[in-house]
Each structure stands twice: as structure tokens, then as C-alpha cells.
Amino acid sequence: MMKQQLRKELKSLRNQLSTAQVEAWSQKICTNILTAPQYSQADVIFGYLAFGNEPNIDAVLQQALLDGKTVCVPQILSATEICALQLGSFDDLQAGPYGIRSVGAGNVIEPQQLELVLVPGVGFAPNGSRLGMGAGYYDRFLAQAGNAVLLGVTYNALLRAELPVEPYDRPVQYIVTETNVTPCG
């Protein structure tokens, strides 16, 4: 199946989830991340700020701040690029491009400094392949974050046995869902 068609189907499936379902599953996902060794071993974490029915990992980012970790979130630089901006507090957030929350200004953290990246996606497969929104922001960014553990964040409902993969697609090393954290391979 073509990427565009699969992306459309998975986004439609995600959009059909109820607010209560998203909240319940997001809470379980956050618990699974916070109890994972990948979280406890990382001092510099790059997360995302959920929009729509994406798994909401705000609780992880807030706990990481409380734990004294350096927390970064994406800032859109152009139609193809993001950078990691340090998040000092959730009070620093404002509406950014596409209605996605972002930090207005702050320290840019180099991708090589990241130790854990929480990677969103429309869908994931057990081998770590990921289907994103289609702009390639994360594939370009993750190519520079060679020292980081990549943890894909999704719902079990959006897992597929396999996904179409391009040479530039960056796989994740682990996938976290509402039920567990699974190594890819």
C-alpha cells in the first residue's frame, strides 16, 4: 500500500478515537515511558507537544523538568526543518505553526546532545519503521541525533505488521504504547 493512502487511513483511525480514550491511553503511555530505563538513563530528552489525537506526553515532559533533566521540544524552522529548543516551563508555550504548541524562544540544543528522543508518528511497525505526517521533519532531524535512543510513541491501534520504507526513513529502537515498551528488531 502506498504511504499516502496508509497515512490517510491511520490518521482517520486516530481521529476517530474519543477524547476519553486518548486521555486514558496517553496516561498509560506516560507511565510506561517514566518507568522505562531509557527515561531514567537520559539527562537530555527531546519530546513533542501533542496536537489532535496524538498521544499526549506532557506528563513525561513535566516530570522530566521536575527531575532536573534538560527537556527540549521541536520548533519548526522551515517547511522541512525543526530544531530542539529547551523548554523551561509549560508557561513558556504558545501556539506555533499549524496550531502546534511551541516555545517562543530559548536555547537551541544540538541534536548530538540528545540522549532520548520521544518520536511521534502516524504509525509504527515492530521493526522500528515509522510513518510520519509526510513532511520529513523527523527523518531529517533524527539523522543528526546519532547519540540518542529513539523511542516511538503510539497507540496499539496504530501498529502495523510492516510499513513502506524509504532509504531516508529513520527507524526507532523502541516503541511505547499504552501496554508496554518493546525493543524493535
Rank of each mutant, 00 (worst) to 15 (best):
F90I: 01
G88Q: 03
Y48H: 09
C83H: 11
L118A: 06
R170D: 06
V117G: 09
E110N: 13
P164L: 05
R170N: 07
A161Y: 08
I82W: 06
D43A: 06
A20H: 14
V71H: 00
G47W: 04
N107V: 14
I109V: 15
Y98I: 08
Q38S: 03
F141A: 06
L61R: 00
A95D: 13
P111L: 12
T179D: 12
Q21K: 05
E166G: 11
V73F: 03
L93A: 00
L17Q: 08
E81T: 11
L13Q: 05
V117Q: 10
A105C: 09
C184Q: 00
K28A: 12
F90A: 00
L163R: 07
I109H: 03
F90C: 00
M2Q: 13
M1P: 13
P74A: 14
T179A: 12
R7M: 06
N156Q: 15
V117T: 04
L116D: 07
K11C: 12
L34R: 04
L10H: 02
M133R: 13
F124T: 12
E81V: 10
F46P: 00
E54H: 15
T70F: 04
G132A: 13
G104P: 03
L131S: 07
F141N: 04
S129L: 05
G185T: 09
K69L: 07
Y174P: 03
I76G: 07
K8H: 12
V172I: 15
R7T: 12
C83L: 14
V44P: 02
A143Q: 10
